[in-house]
Design a binder for these strands. Structure first.
Lengths: 149, 149
DNA sequence: TTTTTTATTTAGAACTATTCTAAACTATTG
DNA sequence: CAATAGTTTAGAATAGTTCTAAATAAAAAA
């Protein structure tokens, strides 16, 4: 069997070093050694979830020399460029809600304001099968909003 | 018009100092001056969203002497007891996802693992009317799971 | 009651994730 | 190549939160 490059279902193109360079240039970022290294870890076919630290550890283990600050920079730049997406987990500035009934929230990313979405105005038809032996602890829906243009 | 105590739709009882004491005792917490003060700010009828800091500022402005550490303690204890609910916003340990398509997540609160929920396995019928002049920036659904008992 | 036990509060230190700073470095442009 | 504009980096700074251990207050026992 011949060695093949991996096919990426999201970008619809093979992920070689060259296309990674193109990908970075395409979003206005210079194809530096560090970004190529980071990109090679992130965009090699399968979908991944990483934190800055986990990625830094991984890069270090792979013998790549990249500072933690650069990892943070790159992750934020990739996210701004739409190459990554942030996942809301494990909040730092924690908001507490006196309404403990099942309901969800609008979060105004412009001014940080949080407002309730009445329980009956949103409907999560939650069919997904849970991983074996697991049960639901809670469901959070956050709709991030911002001022029109 | 006679002064009336506020009626709380959630607890189905009037919110006097006495019922606040009961409320705290009911969840196994001593009715200390600080917790009563904090409770009087939180549970006086209307639903609220607060952070530890905002509540501390508010308490201080109201002439209450409560340390920030105590505010944190109380908010966490109230939350553990089900009197408050945490809202996921403004993450600190940020997770980045290489899958930028619209999809959501399972978060295993036991071991911190994050897994994708395929796009077609969850459905948010999102009817709510947005506040005037606002548009949607993104929707996050996080289903927190844990091991069966 | 008074005493004893146990929970709570607190200031300040510690911690953790993240961003900032400013100097050294590197890619790109002319 | 030289100039310029973007990038990397170590380390300092910041912010939200938790921890520590001593002082205090509430509840239970006597």
């Amino acid at each position: 069997m011949v060695t093949m490059e991996k096919f990426n279902a999201h970008t619809n193109q093979t992920e070689s070093h060259q296309t990674l360079t193109d990908k970075l240039r395409g979003v206005g970022l210079r194809a530096t050694r560090q970004r190529l290294d980071i990109g090679s870890l992130l965009f090699s076919g399968k979908d991944r979830h990483v934190t800055a630290e986990s990625l830094h550890d991984e890069a270090t283990a792979a013998g790549m020399k990249i500072s933690l600050a650069t990892i943070y920079n790159a992750l934020n730049q990739f996210t701004d460029a739409g190459l990554l997406r942030e996942v809301l987990v494990d909040p730092s500035r924690t908001y507490f809600d006196t309404n403990t009934s099942s309901h969800h929230h609008f979060f105004n990313i412009d001014n940080g304001h949080l407002t309730d979405i009445p329980h009956d105005e949103i409907n999560v038809s939650c069919l997904p099968t849970l991983p074996e032996g697991q049960i639901i602890d809670g469901v959070d829906v956050l709709i991030k909003i911002k001022p029109k243009s």
